[in-house]
């Protein structure tokens, strides 16, 4: 069924090259903007959380993920899914409740399961599960790891600490990817997090990397060594990405003031590419927007989903 999703009947194959980070980042961005447009047009049901400004994180990490690795995503997970599967058709069909939906339209934006990828909608819930999967992997498939994407706000949940404690004690291959975008829904990090994420990792004796780079290649260089230690059975790793949430929490619910939004926009990876090669960026951006627009037109025209997953 993977083939079907990669090349849906009547759909357009993803045009990006496997190695082209910028194309993938812009595809994810175009996908998220398209979702906001579809919401504004009343074409989507429920809610969704876009990852605008954070696209580089999964794009950087996905090539480091072994096919045997399990990935746990969260409510803001479109980029995580798209970076692993390059399947905007299946994801949009899921979000729109159309034929070919990854999970038949039952799960929606924040409950996706495909092969060894799973997202759930409750904060912190995935970390103990990832630790359990990592326990399995450490015995059955040594060298493989369980990755869990969480946010800065997730550190309010006790499950995070319970899982970190056990993962460290038992040296489980867990990689916690923290997308610290400085805000939990409407609450800034300064109002929800005492101390630091680094301090929390240190308390459990878990290595922690603070990553400010938005360059996927540079990020991979930073992560590769410590990731090797995880795969070698030395225990978990916390990767804290300093990111910026460009968009609202969900649809139109941004309460930040103009200065905060200016600061978020100033940290956008987009500017680095714009400064280096404005014409090249514009070209790729335009291609990806056109591609995603065509995907959306095609998916919107599909019949409603049956409630049965399009993939196992």
């Amino acid at each position: 069924m993977t083939d079907l999703l990669d090349r849906p009947p009547g759909g357009l194959p993803y045009p990006g090259g496997d190695g082209d980070d910028l194309e993938l980042m812009l595809m994810i961005r175009a996908f998220e903007y398209k979702l906001l447009d579809l919401f504004a047009a009343g074409m989507l049901n429920g809610t969704t959380h876009t990852c605008l400004g954070q696209e580089h994180v999964p794009v950087a990490l996905s090539p480091l993920m072994d096919p045997r690795d399990h990935v746990f995503s969260n409510h803001r997970g479109h980029g995580h899914y798209l970076a692993r599967y390059r399947d905007p058709h299946g994801l949009l069909a899921e979000i729109m409740g159309r034929e070919g939906a990854v999970c038949g339209g039952v799960g929606g934006s924040q409950h996706i399961h495909r092969d060894r990828y799973m997202s759930t909608g409750v904060q912190g819930e995935s970390l103990p599960v990832a630790a359990g999967v990592a326990l399995h992997l450490s015995r059955a498939e040594p060298g493989a790891a369980a990755w869990a994407y969480i946010g800065d706000g997730t550190f309010g949940e006790g499950a995070v600490y319970e899982a970190l404690n056990i993962a460290a004690l038992w040296r489980l291959p867990v990689v916690v990817v923290v997308e610290n975008n400085g805000i939990a829904q409407s609450t800034p990090t300064s109002a929800h997090l005492a101390g630091t994420i680094a301090g929390r990792a240190a308390a459990f004796g878990v290595p922690h990397l603070a990553i400010g780079s938005t360059d996927p290649a540079e990020i991979r260089d930073i992560v590769a060594g410590p990731l090797g230690h995880v795969r070698a059975g030395r225990g978990p790793l916390v990767l804290e990405f300093r990111t910026h949430r460009l968009g609202p929490h969900s649809k139109g619910d941004d309460t930040r003031d103009e200065q905060a939004l200016r600061e978020a926009r100033a940290g956008d990876w987009y500017h680095r590419y714009a400064a280096a090669d404005p014409a090249g960026l514009a070209r790729v951006e335009s291609e990806q927007r056109a591609y995603v627009a065509a995907v959306a037109d095609e998916v919107a025209a599909r019949p409603p989903s049956t409630g049965r997953a399009a993939c196992g």
Partner: peptide, 16 residues
């Protein structure tokens, strides 16, 4: 850690 040990059991089950 009842929450974590139950979640880990679910993780093991998820992995087969």
């Amino acid at each position: 850690s009842e929450g974590a040990l139950t979640g880990m059991a679910a993780g093991l089950a998820l992995a087969g």
